[in-house]
């Protein structure tokens, strides 16, 4: 599904990613762990197409297509979803209107008929319940005045609505208490299908108790320095990041 080859990227002239190689197949969950500043968020932003990040070398193929030929919204339509580390607030734009616009744009790209208002409403209610997002939040502006946990749940709710092929969860666990973490993880596990894949970026092993990865990568100084199965996460937790430096 995703093939990253020797990816280099920089921000304002500073090289952050220094040759990432990663291959993700449908049905897999990959965890990327690493200390602060190792390039975790840069990787997720580069994949989503944030233009503050400049790709200097390497290639990324998504479902056989060159990712760098696609605009951020085209990547979204093709099935890439990023759950943000810090979801932004968009005052004045209602949640319903926002997600409806997003879903309709995706259906249009796929040349399919958008769901009817009744179907859409039903879908919204189901997905809200799945991620434990309070109904009252649906009537509010996107993330405006939401707590940190509500913002993260809202991102997972949007993911459920958009049904991506590849979802990248960028430190979705940060700022979540244990109950919220469990609900979010359950949502992710429910949405897990043989034809989609996840990249779970996290600082701590905690999240991986709930979302069990097939492969764990350790990122350090812009490179993947270790790859293993889920036991690698436990080992890392025990030994600390100094172990891989």
């Amino acid at each position: 599904m995703l093939e990253i080859l020797n990816l280099h990227a920089s921000v304002e002239g500073n090289e952050i990613l220094k040759g990432i190689n990663l291959s993700v197949k449908a049905g897999e969950i990959h965890a990327i762990m690493g200390p602060n500043g190792s390039g975790k968020s840069t990787l997720s932003n580069v994949l989503a197409g944030h233009n503050a990040f400049e790709v200097t070398k390497g290639s990324v193929l998504f479902e056989g297509k060159n990712l760098f030929d696609l605009s951020p919204e085209e990547r979204a339509w093709e099935g890439i979803f990023l759950a943000f580390q810090y979801p932004v607030e968009i005052p004045g734009v209602s949640m319903t209107n926002f997600i409806k616009t997003a879903v309709e744009a995706k259906y249009k790209y796929q040349e399919k008929d958008a769901p009817s208002p009744a179907e859409f409403l039903k879908m919204m209610k189901e997905k809200q319940a799945m991620v434990g997002l309070a109904k009252s939040l649906a009537g509010r502006s996107v993330n405006e005045g939401f707590s940190g946990g509500e913002k993260k749940k809202n991102d997972i709710f949007q993911m459920a609505m958009l049904e991506p092929k590849l979802a990248i969860l960028d430190e979705t666990d940060s700022g979540l208490d244990i109950d919220a973490l469990r609900i979010v993880a359950e949502g992710v596990n429910t949405l897990k299908k043989p034809d989609n894949a996840y990249i779970v970026i996290t600082h701590y092993q905690r999240l991986l108790e709930y979302i069990v990865p097939d492969v764990v990568h350790i990122l350090h100084d812009g490179k993947i320095v270790k790859t293993g199965d889920k036991s690698l996460a436990f080992e890392l937790e025990k030994k600390g990041y100094d172990w891989v430096k």
């Binding site: 951020p72 919204e73 979204a76 979801p87 004045g92 209602s94 209107n97 995706k106 958009l162």
Partner: peptide
């Protein structure tokens, strides 16, 4: 960018925000 990542073009994003 948040809107773009959800598949909402820049034009539509601005229009959403302005109408809001």
């Amino acid at each position: 960018f948040y809107c773009n990542q959800r598949g909402i073009s820049t034009e539509n994003a601005v229009s959403l925000i302005v109408n809001g």
